[in-house]
Design a protein around this nucleic acid. Sequence first.
DNA 1: CTGTTAGCGCGTTCAG
DNA 2: CTGAACGCGCTAACAG
Lengths: 322, 322
Amino acid sequence: MSHVFNDTRNVTDQTRQAVLDAANRLHYRPSAIARSLTTRRTFTVGVVVADVLNPFFAGIIRGVEDLLWQQGRSLVVCSTDEQPEKEAYYLHLLLERRVDGVLVAPTGADLPVYAALRHHQIPLVFIDRRPPQPWGPVVETDNVQAGYLATRYLLDLGHTRIAILGRHQALSTVTGRFAGYRQALTEAGIAPDPALIITVDAQQEAAYQGATALLAQLDAPTALIATNHVMALGVVSAVQASGRRCPQDISIIAFDDLPWLALYSPPLTAVRHATAEICRQAVALLLASLAGHDAETADMVESYPVVMLPAELIERASCGRA
Amino acid sequence: MSHVFNDTRNVTDQTRQAVLDAANRLHYRPSAIARSLTTRRTFTVGVVVADVLNPFFAGIIRGVEDLLWQQGRSLVVCSTDEQPEKEAYYLHLLLERRVDGVLVAPTGADLPVYAALRHHQIPLVFIDRRPPQPWGPVVETDNVQAGYLATRYLLDLGHTRIAILGRHQALSTVTGRFAGYRQALTEAGIAPDPALIITVDAQQEAAYQGATALLAQLDAPTALIATNHVMALGVVSAVQASGRRCPQDISIIAFDDLPWLALYSPPLTAVRHATAEICRQAVALLLASLAGHDAETADMVESYPVVMLPAELIERASCGRA
DNA sequence: CTGTTAGCGCGTTCAG
DNA sequence: CTGAACGCGCTAACAG
């Protein structure tokens, strides 16, 4: 009797025991499959990111898992490798699985599956990046502020030739960070030099090549900003290879703070995302729209919130101070 | 008509088109829930590890995902934080979800839920660590060989006082690596010194404390082996704090090879797991036992294979050579 | 407080 | 080649 398991009815202790005993004897476990078919809830949410192996996304997944596991919700993870086709494929998979909701760091393409998800009333919350169209709420780092923060910090240290490296792909994260970079320079009366704004492919090797080219310029930069963790690895190795000393010859700022950055020689200054807060807000929005469906919010506002969380600069020795 | 979607029947192109058109118009998507209820297959596998955020496990998850996504199978991830209760909780969750199979890096406790999974015919494959009882096949690194490899390498370099740091918990990984360590020492005619075998809690801070104590000894070691990545971080910071120079004053070997180890000064020698191969073998065993159920392997052998994959030493400058 | 029943949306089988 | 009926295991609604 399902009532015993779900406490959905008053039952005498006697019958409860009888049921429980029988259940144990037969190794009975209720089937979540059958339950989902009737209740139309799967207690599962999908998390779609670029790459589970990227520590930034791994942190997001861990944060979301921690917020959900006590509610009996499980997480299915999907790595898109920045391929829109893979993103669409996974979203279709999640749709067929009838997950209760999806958190997605979009590749940037405007996929038809977003409409399909909406049609099936599956809440969608975008994390880290903005979708091309407002298909759902967004929770992201304030990338303009983050780019500004890093650049301003270097300017205050007296740097005037500051280079920035980002992904070649048109992601909202990269464009935001670049915008903040330009804004800080302009405010300081420095015209952004296109030769110091480098975009490369996603791999560490590409970042290495880009940074190496940068350092080989006649009027080479005295400071480098890597707009994500993989780029940071490439930049660091390029600086090593160039024979430059950090921070004497060059300053480095990394994005995405990870344990090893503090152990590097010198310890690397980094821009840290409010990862835990991103997870909290995203999950809150997801659960809210989940509840919203039950409540039949008829005249649902067609504009979704965009939550921007400020980034924080972790000051270490790689810029010659602290 | 399900026949159209599954090509399970000969259908005229006309009716096929009619069905497909209607499906598109209504944004129809087949429900994997309902399908699972009848077919008793969910096309979902669970992966239970200690911590998704740990790069070693993140690599495992990524590897498994890559092997499974094209088959239309999805992955639900679970972090136990080394707590048997959490492991049991998650395994029950996966059991209720009727996943097709489970890959688990067990905490080491002998949980009743293993029997429950078997009773429900849900294949179980253990990865990275050995379970207390033979509840399923195991795919792991040859930890004895790995510990031997690292120790022997240091011995060949002339070290005689070699310390090793491991987790306090009784995991098959740690005991194996310790055993290999002892074996190498003994072979070299050196009696293992209990003062050089340190076990600490899982956190980086604990490893830092342990390594610091080690370095403060009167007859301090000249080489340190950290048996996992988190320990390595603690060891490295302890060496830095002690004012020692690596490799002049002390040699370090890390476990779990990650990109940043090569960028450290000096680049860190590390023991690398055959992560991709672990994933391949584990998934192969899982799919095999999955197929086995259909084939009704009546007289199933009650002993499961234990696959041990050799580790590899990545030689870098932190030991004074290469 | 307890027993019975309809139906969730598929795959499968059995008639047509 | 096609339509109709059954059942997977559960929840919810309805009788007793």
